[in-house]
Structure formats: structure tokens, C-alpha cells
Design a protein around this nucleic acid. Structure first.
Lengths: 230, 230
DNA sequence: GCACTAACCAACGGTTGTTTACTTAAGTAA
DNA sequence: TTACTTAAGTAAACAACCGTTGGTTAGTGC
């Protein structure tokens, strides 16, 4: 697994290029976080080994291990938020917006199980997860609540603010439960993911599942960002 | 936290009472598993300290740390299954059965966050979690699927077996997401738990939330087992 | 006294995060 | 070219843990 056991003493970066190692450290930590069975067992020395550098060298770029992890998590969190916003940015109406947003959420979570668990699994100490400090993805949640409420316009009865909030919460918990169990229990026979997303959104919007399914963006649509950054 | 630093060398148990320590070890491990922020970082030496015993003494009763943890998890799993069955055993009809079962699940999960995470959080290595080896609470899931299908009898269209399975899955993911997020993110303003349960079951059964809420057993009903065994 | 059981002590080999002191090399200015 | 400065990274050590083992002690009941 490790690229180099003890091969070359590693070509040192030139004078002003100290940031190169920093980027390598971030990439390696991200890769390990998403690869490890238990992301919270990420080790400073693992990162150092992955990059091929001495453990102490990390302290030139991050004050401690926690700061490195926190930096990686912040990047992932921003990536997810950006992805959801991009998915919804050209939506012609609130329902499409909601569907695109939720589909992006689920697909990102299923596509990156390690990162998802690390961000939303509640495993990391709270002060390490960026969103958690402000309410665990509060921005994402609020966007979903807003979209859901807007999509529910024109219903028979206008729900109160509390009801809107509760409905959004329920939707988020359902999305989270779907991603979590889908990721953690691959051994049970899951239906196609898109069917589940459509079914879930159908339940929470009251629209027929077929209508939702027709609105689901294709998997290849709007990748948002190429998988270059790991 | 630890009861005794290094006080007395611990009164030795009498001749035939070697099992006393075993029970104490199980209790201590269970307590630590439910208390620790990261249950998977449970340590043999932590258990030994909690009981006030030398680390090596554990090996008289369990072959290794994994066996001890596995034993504790099996107990918790059986406790949850028994609790759900007891909650539903005197249900007059499938809907009440379903509501009682799901309410028991959620309440147990919310009442014992550490145990719930340990069992269903996907944190432990698979071979340590008893249910996971056979499909992660497959029995619980099947019971829910059955109840949900029975409760949906008399609907307009009879769903196919696949549809029943998918509906049960969706219900379980929703329950799991609710418990997980409720436990992990206490900082966001949650509505009363019973409201959420009623709302969730209302979505998944198509019945009015008020009807479900009326069926919810009171919190004190049928404790099933006293909180004696930790 | 003797056998047995319950539990202990000390150690081994390993891991971890972090610190301190040091080396090497690149760029800069004389 | 040579000397100086400073960034980049290393090596070695530290103290704290970990799971596990082998051999040992001390009480108990016959």
C-alpha cells in the first residue's frame, strides 16, 4: 500500500515551495480518511508514511494533527456545499431545486463513504468537524428546509414555520439514514439508489414517485468538479 | 471518574465465585461502551481500571478483548430485539404493532446513544457486531417490513413484494437517520421526539399524524426491563 | 499439608503525538 | 566565488499508551 518503504530520502522542495508538501499532506490525509475503515483512527504517522516524510515534518505546516484533520474536513464540507448549490443553481422551480439538492447530497455521500461518515457520522470530536460547531451542516439543512417549503407552496394548507422546520428535519434525517445504512450495510439487497431517492422524496413532497424520478438529474450531469482533488 | 486509583488490592472473590468478576467486566465494558465518545476506542486496560483489576485478569474470563466486546454487543442487541417484541406483543392490530415496534426502536436508540452507535453506527469492525454478520439487524428489519406490509393492508393497490421490501427499507433508514442525528447533533432545536416519531410513521403509513400519535405508547409503559443491567 | 482457583506483577514489543536539536540545500548579497 | 541566511526536512528521543504473555502469589476448601 505505502508507496515507498525507505527508498529515497525524498527530494527536498526548493526554497519557496514549502506549500507543495502542505498540499501533499492534505491530499494524503484526505485519501486516508476516505480509505480507512475507521476514519477516526487516522494517524499522524500514517500521513507521514503515505507522503514519505518524517512525522515531525508535519509540524512545519500544521500546529498539530487536529489542525490537519480539521483542514481536510473543511475542504470536504465546502465541496459538498458547493456541489449541492451547483446542482440546484439552474433549477426552474423549487421542486426541481429540492430534488437536485437532495440527489447531490445522497450521491456525494454514497460516492464518498469515508468522507460522509467523517463529516456526519458523529465520530470525530465535535471541535474537529467544521459544520458541527455551527450546528452540523446547518447551512445545508436550512437550504433543504427552504427548498422543501417552497416546493410545498400551493398545498391545501399553509404549514406554520415550526411545521416547515420539522418537515425539513424529517427530510434530512431520512436522507442521512439512507446514506448511512446504504454505506454501512452493503450486504443487504438494496434497490437501485435512484429508486430510493425518488421514493424518499415522493414521501416527503407528496408528489408521485414517477414525477420525482423524471426530475432526477442523470448521474453524469454536472459533475461540478472533476475528481482531480483526490 | 475511575472509582479507585490504587486503593485496595481488591478483595478476592471466594472459591466458586469466579463468575462474579466476569459479570463485573461485562458491566464495566458496557458502561464504557455507552459512555465513551468513540466506543470503538474501548480499551482492555480501561475495563480493567474500571473494575479495579489487573489487565491480565481479564484473560481468565475472555480469550481476548474482541470476545469481551462481542459479548457485550450481543447482549445489547438481544435487549433491543426483546424490547421491540415485548412492545408489540399485545398489539391488537398491525398498525399498533408497527407503531409500538418503531417507537421502541427510536426510544431505545435515543436513550442509549452509545449502545446505538456501537450497534448500528458502522464503527465497529464487522466481525465484532453480532447482527452485522447476518445482515445488521436483519431480524429487526424483517419484523418492521412485515408489520408495515400488514398495516398497509386494505390500501387501494396491493404492493408487490419488492415494493413492500423497499417501503420497509425506507422506514428503517428513516428511523435510523432520526436516531443518529438526534443523538449526534443535540445542538440543533429538535421538536419533541414523539412528534417526530408520529410524523415519520404518518409519512410512511399514510395515516394522519394525529392517529399515530394517539397510538404511541406512553414513555413509561412496559419498560420491558429495568435499567438494572447498566 | 495439598491442590486449586483468583488474581497479580513485571515485562515485551508495539503504537501513538509531540518536542528538540540538528542537517542539508537553496537563494542572496558581498 | 564565497559567505551568510533561512527554509525544508531529518533523526532521535520522550512519555504515554496499547494488547498480550509467562511466571508468581495468596487465599480457599478438603
Amino acid at each position: 500500500m505505502s508507496s515507498q518503504e525507505r527508498s529515497a530520502p525524498r527530494r527536498r522542495n526548493p526554497r519557496g515551495q514549502g506549500q507543495v508538501l502542505k498540499a501533499q499532506l492534505v491530499d494524503a490525509a484526505a485519501k486516508l480518511l476516505s480509505t480507512l475503515d475507521q476514519p477516526e483512527t487516522l494517524t499522524l504517522r500514517q500521513v507521514a508514511r503515505e507522503v514519505g516524510v518524517a512525522p515531525a515534518s508535519i509540524y512545519s505546516h500544521f500546529p498539530d494533527l487536529g489542525a490537519l484533520i480539521q483542514h481536510v474536513l473543511r475542504l470536504r464540507y465546502e465541496e459538498l456545499a458547493r456541489l449541492m448549490d451547483q446542482a440546484a443553481q439552474s433549477a426552474p422551480d423549487p421542486l426541481v431545486d429540492l430534488v437536485a439538492r437532495c440527489a447531490a447530497y445522497v450521491r456525494w455521500g454514497v460516492g464518498q463513504p469515508g468522507h460522509y461518515r467523517t463529516l456526519f457520522g458523529g465520530r470525530m470530536p465535535d471541535d474537529l468537524v467544521p459544520g458541527s460547531a455551527h450546528g452540523a451542516g446547518a447551512e445545508l439543512l436550512e437550504a433543504v428546509v427552504t427548498s422543501l417549503a417552497a416546493a410545498a407552496e400551493g398545498e391545501r394548507r399553509q404549514p406554520s414555520a415550526e411545521q416547515q422546520w420539522q418537515a425539513g428535519l424529517m427530510l434530512w434525517t431520512a436522507l442521512h439514514g439512507l446514506v448511512s445504512l446504504y454505506n454501512d450495510h452493503g450486504n443487504i439487497p438494496w434497490p437501485p439508489l435512484d429508486d430510493l431517492i425518488a421514493d424518499l422524496l415522493s414521501l416527503h413532497t407528496g408528489r408521485p414517485a414517477a414525477e420525482i424520478a423524471a426530475l432526477l438529474p442523470q448521474c453524469g450531469d454536472d459533475p461540478g468538479l472533476a475528481p482531480d482533488s483526490i
